[in-house]
């Protein structure tokens, strides 16, 4: 645990120093509008955490984004299998997935808002952002599976299920982990961005939007810290699940 301390402590020190410099430049006036002190953010966070609304907001956003993440991962994995198995499907679907990856997320948020209700947008946007990353990683993983092992599986009469469990899944493990790490961060970023624009109730994005409205910068920092923490917790949880699940076949 101790080895993890120095880097966060260093950046906390940098933050404190920068806030102090801003404070001096503005002669103590309006510092909280530009860069609040870490202590101000901590105070804002503790006040928020004492309210039931805070937890309702967190669980509501967590639910939406987790659904989007799960859908994006499953769809991305399914499409990776499909495009690797069928050149025809690859020719048809790959350009569309690349367009989704390259298109600005704001455009999708506004379009999905027009097509569906505002409560649905964050989950849909999270899924759309996660899908191409998952597809890309898993496609590369499937293509990198040792052809000789697949030949062996064919010769030794492995069923499809056995080939998947004994050859594909272990070989794909690093690709799945990379996809999971990148996808979780993306799901939170895009999901909260969608919440800021669509204001579903209650949501982290809505609270972040109101901090801008009321120029409550310490609270903005507090909600941002909560979002980052949630993203990291979710990512670690998923990685732990994957490790546990893969213990039987992992190297």
């Amino acid at each position: 645990m101790l080895y993890a301390l120095p880097a966060p402590a260093f950046w906390l020190g940098v933050w404190q120093l920068c806030a102090f410099l801003v404070d001096r430049r503005l002669e103590g006036k309006g510092n909280e509008l530009l860069l609040p002190y870490p202590l101000s953010v901590w105070n804002a966070l503790t006040v928020l955490a004492g309210t039931g609304e805070f937890w309702a907001t967190i669980f509501s956003s967590l639910g939406r984004i987790a659904i989007g993440l799960a859908c994006g991962l499953l769809l991305g994995a399914g499409l990776a299998v499909l495009t690797c198995a069928s050149p025809w499907a690859d020719r048809l679907l790959s350009p569309a997935i690349r367009v989704v990856r390259a298109a600005p997320v704001a455009s999708f948020i506004l379009l999905v808002l027009l097509w569906t209700g505002r409560n649905t947008v964050p989950a849909v946007i999270s899924a759309m952002m996660v899908l191409p990353v998952t597809w890309d990683n898993l496609s590369r993983g499937i293509q990198a599976v040792d052809r000789k092992l697949l030949e062996l599986a064919n010769c030794y009469r492995f069923s499809r299920r056995k080939t998947a469990a004994l050859i594909y899944l272990p070989a794909l493990r690093p690709y799945i982990l990379t996809a999971l790490t990148t996808a979780t961060g993306l799901a939170w970023k895009s999901g909260v961005a969608a919440e800021v624009l669509c204001l579903p109730e209650p949501s982290l994005g809505q609270r972040i939007y109101y901090t801008k409205y009321y120029l409550d910068i310490p609270e903005l920092f507090a909600w941002t810290a909560v979002t980052v923490a949630l993203s990291m917790v979710l990512e670690r949880l998923l990685r732990a699940c994957l490790t546990r699940w893969g213990r039987g076949w992992a190297a």
């Binding site: 000789k148 092992l149 062996l152 010769c155 009469r157 004994l166 272990p170 992992a250 190297a251």
Partner: peptide
């Protein structure tokens, strides 16, 4: 072919098994 069993020139072992 289905009645044969081949030992390949390389071992083709599964590192995770």
């Amino acid at each position: 072919p289905r009645e044969t069993a081949i030992l390949f020139q390389d071992d083709r072992l599964l590192p995770w098994r």
